[in-house]
Structure formats: C-alpha cells, structure tokens
C-alpha cells in the first residue's frame, strides 16, 4: 500500500467484541484500583486461562463513510525521522485541516496513535511513539484545539504497516495515525 493511499483512509477500531467479552474491565475507568478480571478467572478450562480474549479487530474504512465531509481526502498518517519527534513541514497543511475540524466541532474526539520502527527496544519505542503523538497533539492545541479533545496513545513498534527490514519499511512505520472516536 502506498503512502498516498494510506493517507486516504482512517483506521477505525471495532472494540465491540472486547466490550461484550470483558465488560467488567473494559468499562472500568477507576484505574487506580484493582479490577478483578472475572472473565478469565471464571472461564478457565486450561491451566493458564488461555484463549479468553476475544480481541479487537482493526478495520480500514474510507473517510466518506465516517461522515466527516470537511476531512474527506485529508491525510490521517504523519511520518517522522529516525529517533525524532518533530512534525515535518509537509504535515502542516493536513494537520491544520484536522485542527480546524476539531475547533468547529468541539464534541469531536481524536486519538493520536504514535508508532516507531522495529529498531531499538520495545518499551523505549513505546515512549518514542508517545513522544511523536504528543508532538502532533501540541501542533493541534497551538491551532486552538482543546486538550480535552485529544488523547495520545503509543503502539511502539508493535503494529507496523510495512514488514521489510529496510529504510523504506522503517520510514512507513515511524508515524502517527489520526483516529476519530
């Protein structure tokens, strides 16, 4: 898949399976207390409670299906240099459109999902992906988007979109994906 084509899609996570399967914890927002995972404890038939997780599936849907007309065709994936979290000049135009949309739709919520390439250790890359998502977040808040509309999440190197072990693949994977919830 080419970079341009990627840009025309938004990634939507279908988490219905999760919520249905694990309602105890999925809806638990008090994160400082221990949430007993009743689901896995109750249904274990193997020694380790395996296979209890009906996990989420990511589905790619075209923008026009999401009803955000003003963002049709606007890129949702932004790329970064190696070990860097600086927003590139070529990202600014598209980001300005996202910012304008969020400012005029104060109820809209966006998740910025940061990613890293496979080089380096996994937890460090989690931190690096977050740093990239935060760089995009800062760019949006400077344009007037309320911080409460933005959430940053990092996937580190865990969810690559290109699978080679070369500089092309690494470049495609060092990215932040803009996802509307």
């Amino acid at each position: 898949m080419s970079v341009n084509k990627l840009g025309k899609f938004a990634v939507i996570g279908l988490s219905a399976a999760w919520i249905a399967g694990c309602s105890t914890t999925a809806t638990d927002t008090d994160s400082s207390t221990v949430a007993e995972d009743a689901n896995s404890a109750a249904n274990t038939d193997s020694a380790y409670g395996a296979g209890q997780d009906n996990a989420t599936t990511s589905v790619i849907v075209e923008d026009k299906d999401t009803g955000m007309d003003s963002l049709a065709g606007v890129e949702t994936v932004f790329y970064f240099d190696f070990d860097k979290s600086i927003v590139r000049p070529e990202s600014r135009e598209a980001l300005a459109k996202h910012a304008a949309y969020l400012v005029s739709n104060p109820d809209a919520r966006v998740v910025l999902e940061g990613h890293a390439d496979e080089r380096g250790t996994r937890e460090y890359n989690m931190a690096l992906g977050e740093r990239r998502a935060k760089a995009i977040s800062r760019y949006l808040t400077i344009q007037g988007v309320a911080a409460s509309q933005i959430e940053t999440v990092s996937f580190g190197e865990e969810v690559p979109v290109a699978f080679g072990h070369d500089s092309n693949a690494w470049q495609l994977n060092r990215r932040v994906e803009v996802r509307y919830e």
């Binding site: 896995s40 409670g49 999902e113």
Partner: peptide, 24 residues
C-alpha cells in the same frame, strides 16, 4: 496487553489463570 487500542498492565497467577488489571 493492549485493550481497546490502549496499553494495560496485568498480573496473572500462572497456576489458576487468575488475572488482575493493575494499571490502565
């Protein structure tokens, strides 16, 4: 382990499979 596209920390007792979500 990620859930709903966010990372969570779990602890789990191996013998029983009993799992606790300790940070989200």
């Amino acid at each position: 382990m990620f859930r709903n596209r966010r990372p969570n920390i779990f602890t789990q007792e191996l013998a029983t499979g009993r799992r606790q979500q300790i940070a989200q």
